[in-house]
Design a protein around this nucleic acid. Sequence first.
DNA 1: CTTGAAATTGACTGATTGGTAAAGTATTTT
DNA 2: AAAATACTTTACCAATCAGTCAATTTCAAG
Lengths: 201, 201
Amino acid sequence: MGRVSDARERILAAALELIWEQSYHSVGVDAICKRAGVRKGTFYHFFPSKAYLSAAAIHQHWQEYKPLLDSIFSPTVAPLARLDAYFNKVYEFQSERKHLSGFVCGCPYFDLGIEVATLDKEILVQVRCVIDLYFRYFASAVRDAVAQEVIAATDTDTSARRLLHYFEGTLMNARIHNDPELLRDLPEGARQLLGVTSVNR
Amino acid sequence: MGRVSDARERILAAALELIWEQSYHSVGVDAICKRAGVRKGTFYHFFPSKAYLSAAAIHQHWQEYKPLLDSIFSPTVAPLARLDAYFNKVYEFQSERKHLSGFVCGCPYFDLGIEVATLDKEILVQVRCVIDLYFRYFASAVRDAVAQEVIAATDTDTSARRLLHYFEGTLMNARIHNDPELLRDLPEGARQLLGVTSVNR
DNA sequence: CTTGAAATTGACTGATTGGTAAAGTATTTT
DNA sequence: AAAATACTTTACCAATCAGTCAATTTCAAG
């Protein structure tokens, strides 16, 4: 019924791009509308607030990102190869972003989560939820690595948490230094952290 | 000559507290002035802009923080014990912050650096500078650990970088989850990352 | 005590903030 | 064709934003 449009999707995409590259509080509703090619009235027709829109944009990004993760972290792939493939993908993506926009943008979930951590529960809950799902890929890879005796047996979830923290810390630092080359160390760094025993595969 | 005051210091302290807990863009000059007990005219008597003030606040925090780091990372202390002592200090500090303000605030340098990475060169340069100094404590500790054969010989600066990334990633996640208990894993996590060989000391 | 410099105030600016309301336009369903 | 619905636009709001400035208060040095 009524008229149909893709304005909602354009607004979500515009918001994610702008907030990811810049920051939540420095990007205004006006800027989002401008990039989406939409007037402010249309914005508030689809979203009740800027905060709600941002939470929805994070959710939307996850929905679009998940298939890639499912493919890279497929159990058919050797656990360490999953990490290698993913870290390589991240490096390629951030390098391309730097070429296109001039900036390494880091991780949208952590970027936004850190900024609104003490300010907006609505966004924060969504970010935490996505980060928890994100973590599971690492947890599964580490678990499989232990099962295949590629790394020594330990508390796999704890190891995976440490790996996620190392990975995110590296991404954050790459953003601060606007240097994608910092990400090249991820595969080796992950091996050191996990204490990879054999050189097989 | 003329009148003297500590208004400049009060403004620096107020800015750091507010921006650290909340965020750069969500804290206004008015809020900083209010917390510092100062009118806006006084603010702009001491600082040319909000950005300059923020860079100065980061510099000031480093100046006050450095003596503690120098003491904890003293070469008279065993390298791993330095890390243990520092991580424990961070845990205590963040726990206390949570009790007082209700929030785990993370690292002021990374928090701010990530937010303004693509927006404000002036602040960013200052943040990068402090992070580089910060890194040296980790680098020195890892170097000494290798020299004392507490960990295996590797590229010590690379290991230290990884350690910093793991540490900062953990701190960021503690902020997002508002959970200081995540920091309790730091000593063990650092050992796993560095591949501590002996259980001595 | 005077003088001059430093600190402080309060009132102000123009731009931008997130958000609202109502009228208008397009499109599908009946 | 009519009516119901969904989308879009325009104009608007009060609040807040970073920043300005001239007048005033305070205090240390001469």
